[in-house]
Design a protein around this nucleic acid. Structure first.
Length: 276
DNA sequence: TGCCAGGCCGAAA
DNA sequence: TTTCGGCATGGC
C-alpha cells in the first residue's frame, strides 16, 4: 500500500481497484452521499470525510494520522479484493458479476450502525432505508461540522435505548421502530456485546444475534458480514434467490467459501443493476 | 388502486 | 417443517 499526501488529500495505491460508486451504493452501507462533483461525503465513527476514486485508487480527505487510525481499517485496505474477485469468476455469469462489481470493498462498519441499518432494511428499498437512517442521525446523532456543513454521527445505543418506540415515530420506520429500541436496550444494558460476538464463530454469533426481535437469518447475516466483517456469512435472501434464477450454477460452492459474503455482494449488486 | 421493497413473526396445517 | 397473513410506509 502506497500513500501520497497532497494537502491533506491522501491517495492510496495498492488497495485497488477501488470504486466509490460501487462501494457506497452496492447496498452495504447507507451513510455516504454522492456529491455533484463525483465525490462522496460520509460519516464514520463520528468522523466525516470526502472520498473519490481516481484510476482505481482511493482518494480521501484525511490526515495521515486519521487514515492510519480509522480509514485504513474502514476500507479494509490490507485485503486483496482483486484476488477474491478473480477466484469468484468461475463461469460466464460469475465472471460478469465479478467484473461488474470489481470495485466493491466490504467496509468495516460500526457493528451498532450495521445492526440498526439492516433492521431498517427489512421489506424496504434502498432509497427509503437511506432516508430513515438519515432521519435517525439528524434526530438523535451528535452534530459535527465538515467543510462548513453540519452532519451528524450515528446515534449511540444509550441514546436510542432511552427512547420509546413512539418517540421514534418521526422516523416513519413503521413496525421496525420497536426492533431498534429493543436492540438499543440490549446493547446499552450489556446483554449484547459486540466484542463478544466478534470472538465467536459465525454460527454462534448468528444464533446469538437472532435472539433479538426483528433479527432473522437475513438481517443476522448482513449484520455479521457488514458489522462484524465475518466474510463467510452468506445471507440467503430474496436477492440471492433472484440471483439464483439467473445463475444456474452451484450456489453452495460460494456459500461454503470463506469469502461467501463478498461473493453475495457481487451477486446482489450485479443482479440489482442488470437483471430487473 | 394495487403491488412491491435486501423480512420477521406467530398461528395454523 | 412449511405455509401464510399481517405488519408501516412510500414510490411507481
Amino acid at each position: 500500500m502506497q500513500i501520497t499526501d497532497n494537502n491533506s488529500y491522501l491517495t492510496i495505491q495498492g488497495c485497488s481497484p477501488f470504486s466509490a460508486e460501487q462501494t457506497f451504493s452496492c447496498g452495504q452501507c447507507f451513510r455516504w452521499t454522492a456529491q455533484p462533483d463525483g465525490s462522496w461525503v460520509g460519516v464514520v465513527r463520528g468522523r466525516a470525510a470526502r472520498v473519490r476514486d481516481s484510476g482505481g485508487a482511493l482518494c480521501i480527505s484525511s490526515s495521515r494520522a486519521e487514515f492510519d487510525a480509522l480509514w485504513s481499517d474502514y476500507f479494509d485496505c490490507a485485503a486483496d479484493y482483486a484476488a477474491v474477485c478473480r477466484s469468484f469468476a468461475v463461469d460466464d455469469f460469475t465472471a460478469k458479476a465479478a467484473a461488474f462489481g470489481s470495485g466493491i470493498r466490504i467496509l468495516r462498519q460500526e457493528p451498532w450502525e450495521a445492526l440498526c441499518t439492516f433492521l431498517i432494511s427489512q421489506c424496504n428499498n434502498i432509497p427509503r432505508i437511506t432516508a430513515i437512517v438519515e432521519r435517525l442521525c439528524t434526530g438523535w446523532g451528535d452534530p459535527l461540522s465538515f467543510e462548513g456543513q453540519q452532519l451528524h454521527a450515528f446515534p449511540s445505543p444509550d441514546r436510542l435505548a432511552a427512547l420509546s418506540p413512539e418517540a421514534l415515530a418521526p422516523l416513519r420506520a413503521g413496525y421496525r421502530a420497536p426492533y431498534l429500541t429493543a436492540a438499543a436496550q440490549a446493547v446499552a444494558s450489556g446483554k449484547l456485546s459486540f466484542s463478544a460476538l466478534r470472538k465467536m464463530s459465525t454460527p454462534d454469533a448468528r444464533r446469538q444475534i437472532m435472539q433479538l426481535p426483528g433479527v432473522g437469518r437475513k438481517v443476522a447475516d448482513c449484520f455479521l458480514l457488514f458489522g462484524l466483517h465475518k466474510l463467510d456469512a452468506f445471507p440467503v435472501d430474496t436477492w440471492m434467490k433472484k440471483a439464483a434464477v439467473y445463475y444456474s450454477g452451484d450456489m453452495q460452492r460460494f456459500a461454503d467459501s470463506p469469502y461467501a459474503g463478498i461473493y453475495q455482494q457481487y451477486f446482489f449488486y450485479y443482479v440489482r443493476e442488470n437483471c430487473r
